[in-house]
Computed example of a mutant assay.
Amino acid sequence: MTKLIQQILVPEAAHELCPRCGSDAARVAVGVTLSDGDLLFDCRDCGFEWGELLRDLMA
């Protein structure tokens, strides 16, 4: 028998604060990009999702 290899993808931490709740539990949404190629971020605490354009406007 052959062994099956299982790959577990862990979302990359975004190292920034959530614009809605201020939590530092933001991460890059894996495999999701917006129509113009920007990354999509999400907060593990409140579930808010935002793109790079909103992140730049909030900075």
Rank of each mutant, 00 (worst) to 15 (best):
K3T: 15
V28K: 04
L54G: 08
T33H: 06
L39N: 04
G31Y: 01
A13S: 12
D56I: 06
L39E: 03
L53N: 13
A14P: 08
A59H: 12
T2G: 15
A13K: 09
A14N: 08
D36T: 06
L53V: 12
C43Y: 00
E49V: 05
V30F: 01
V10I: 14
G47Q: 05
G31V: 02
L57G: 12
D45H: 10
L4F: 10
I5P: 12
D38P: 00
C46D: 04
C18K: 03
C18D: 02
E12H: 01
L9H: 14
L57Q: 11
L34Y: 12
L9C: 15
C43E: 01
F48L: 07
A26E: 13
G47R: 05
E49K: 00
R55E: 05
A26Y: 06
F48T: 04
T2V: 15
D56V: 06
Q6Y: 12
E12C: 06
E52Y: 01
F41T: 00
L4Q: 15
D42R: 01
L34F: 14
R44F: 06
Q7S: 14
A13H: 11
W50A: 05
T33K: 10
E52C: 03
L40N: 03
L40M: 04
F48P: 03
D56P: 07
P19C: 05
E49M: 04
R20I: 09
W50Y: 12
G37F: 08
G31C: 04
T2P: 14
E49P: 00
D56Y: 07
M58Q: 12
S35K: 10
E52W: 01
D45S: 10
A29V: 11
L39H: 04
V30I: 02
Q7G: 13
L53M: 13
E52L: 00
L4P: 09
P11L: 01
V28H: 03
A14G: 14
I8H: 07
R55V: 03
A29R: 05
